[in-house]
Design a protein around this nucleic acid. Structure first.
Length: 510
RNA sequence: GGCCCCUUCGUCUAGUCUGGUCUAGGACACCUGGUUUUCAUCCAGGCAACACGGGUUCAAAUCCCGUAGGGGUCACCA
């Protein structure tokens, strides 16, 4: 079942074109190439395919490298990564060779390669592929601008760099016949090809950065259009932030259409609605607080499996067991719920100090003000949210009330916990205030014990009768971590202030 | 549209090559019950699939043919 061990030293590569962010699918391809090289004691090389001069940028190169670094997939040629734009001599030499053999011809300033024979090649996951001569067309290998096309460049580079195993996305499967013909024409040995299935959205569409626009657009259409006040404030907000004043004259529908390609659009909209954009690039996942080891684990399992029921494994395990034979053939849908479950599981297994440290690092980067506000209680805060978090960012969103005074109180929560039964909850909340104000020691244990005692004193069946009204006062809703730690993190002064504010704002007849 | 590829629970998948051990296993999601001061965690249980139609065979999720659905590709993009 396992692949036969390769006889030559293995050389794999990851060759992105620096035209944008590293896509999550690209990350998985890189992971597989990296793991295969590690498994066989070979090399994993990087290369930038920047023959599209208009779309390539050094900034994109840097970003891709940063993301690869974050994933822990460092190329063995990290210090001198070749760029195709700097190797024109190589392609020209190959061109000359094929020209001399009569395999090429000029066409409108470009050079085409003659495809005249049927091609058969083998793929490690899709098996033998045969393409008849009728289905093959001559294709351009050098563009009029003198640059090689992707087809020529990959083949020449992979041959020159000694790449033995070409691992890449399935969208290249139909290009492979061309590449095989080129290898043959150049007299170079063909590599082993391994095409991996694609990663799709839950609805079966391709995961792409367009998803963010779609998401933002839907958000606006659902929540704003038809509501004049919201339309106006969105136009104002968008135009001021994006510095596009003329949108003020348009309407929201036009805005959506007009800025469908403005990268800032989804970000601004998501910000406005406090919504979470769908992640599609590695950078997106990092920003939303995903733990890299979990992401890698999930990614590996999307399309590959060890052949048993094991799902949770680390990179060492992957390097020890990864093989082409266990890569599936069909596309898979990216299941955020399962990723979240993996994450939560991992967070639960982490030593508390590790979790606190990771959250601190994430917060220092994304929420420095929160770190300052939390001060000495940071670890307690992290601990309070450990069982409730699926990402490093969750404590910030779930625990927002620690940093922002509730502006309004959830009506349902108010009714259920405060005003119901002639304001029983409100009455209890007054007792809570007195009890907490009189407390000598402000600790999780002491506050908990005091509230517990109070609930019994009041003849309540459990602590809920005092804890829930208190939660509404502190958070505006009825959800928080355990009440003891919550009080300590918030502090006595702030706690009493919020209780007073709540008592003032909510009355029985409200 | 031509060509290529794919098709097991809602989702990721094991099982397919080497047909019987599969009344199809696991995980996520979902549902029910229990623990619990809320949320979450945790515990117990449950629902749920071989795309369809023909063959071959004593026997088919597994082999063959066809149909349907999905994806890719058909650029002087990669």
């Amino acid at each position: 079942m396992a692949d036969p061990p390769p006889s030559n030293p293995v050389v794999t590569r990851f060759a992105p074109s620096p035209t944008g962010e590293l896509h999550i699918g690209g990350a998985r391809t890189a992971l597989f190439a990296w793991a295969y090289a590690r498994r066989h004691g070979g090399k994993f090389l990087l290369r930038f395919e920047d023959t599209d001069r208009k779309r390539s940028s050094k900034q994109a190169e840097q970003n891709i490298l940063r993301d690869l670094e974050w994933l822990g997939l460092r190329g063995d040629n990290h210090d001198s990564i070749p760029r195709q734009s700097e190797r024109l001599d190589l392609y020209n030499a190959a061109l000359d060779k094929m020209k001399a053999a009569g395999r090429t011809y000029e066409d409108d300033g470009a050079v085409r390669f003659r495809m005249d024979k049927p091609v058969v090649f083998d793929d490690e996951v899709y098996g033998r592929i045969e393409v008849g001569a009728d289905d093959l067309e001559d294709f351009v290998i050098r563009k009029a601008d003198g640059f090689p096309t992707f087809h020529l460049a990959v083949v020449v580079d992979d041959a020159e760099m000694g790449v033995t195993h070409v691992i890449r996305g399935q969208e290249h499967l139909s290009n492979t016949a061309k590449h095989a013909a080129l290898y043959d024409a150049l007299g170079e040995p063909r590599p082993v090809w391994c095409h991996t299935p694609s990663i799709m959205n839950p609805d079966g569409s391709k995961m792409s950065k367009r998803d963010k626009f779609k998401f933002a657009k839907t958000l606006v259409q659902k929540n704003v259009i038809g509501k004049p006040d919201l339309e106006k404030s969105l136009l104002l907000s968008y135009s001021s932030r994006a510095e596009v004043s003329r949108t003020l004259q348009g309407n929201v529908s036009e805005l959506v259409e007009e800025f469908a390609n403005d990268l800032r659009f989804p970000v601004i909209i998501a910000d406005l609605f406090d919504a979470h954009l769908p992640e599609v690039s590695v950078d997106d996942f990092r920003r939303s607080g995903h733990i890299v080891s979990v992401l890698l684990n999930y990614l590996a399992l999307l399309g590959w499996n060890p052949g048993n029921d094991l799902e949770r494994f680390d990179l060492d395990y992957l390097c020890e067991h990864f093989d082409f034979g266990r890569i599936g053939k069909s596309n898979s849908k990216f299941d955020r719920d399962k990723l979240a479950a993996f994450s939560q599981d991992t967070i639960l297994q982490m030593p508390l100090e590790t979790w606190a440290q990771r959250v601190r690092e994430f917060f220092e980067q994304h929420h420095p003000a929160y770190v300052e506000r939390l001060g000495e209680h940071f670890d307690l805060f992290a601990e309070a949210y450990r069982e409730r978090s699926k990402t490093l960012a969750d404590p910030a969103t779930l625990g927002r009330f620690f940093f922002e005074v509730p502006e309004e109180y959830n009506p349902k929560a108010v009714k259920k916990n405060l005003t119901k039964n002639d304001g029983e909850g409100l009455a209890n909340l007054r007792h809570v205030r007195d009890t907490l104000a009189a407390l000598d020691e402000w600790s999780a244990a002491a506050t908990h014990a005091a509230l517990d005692a109070l609930s019994r004193e009041l003849g309540l069946k459990n602590m809920g009768g005092v804890a829930q009204p208190l939660r509404v006062a502190l958070t505006g809703a009825a959800v928080s971590p355990e009440i003891g730690p919550t009080l300590v993190i918030l502090g006595r002064d702030e706690t009493l202030r919020r209780i007073d504010a709540c008592l003032a704002a909510v009355s029985t007849d409200a």
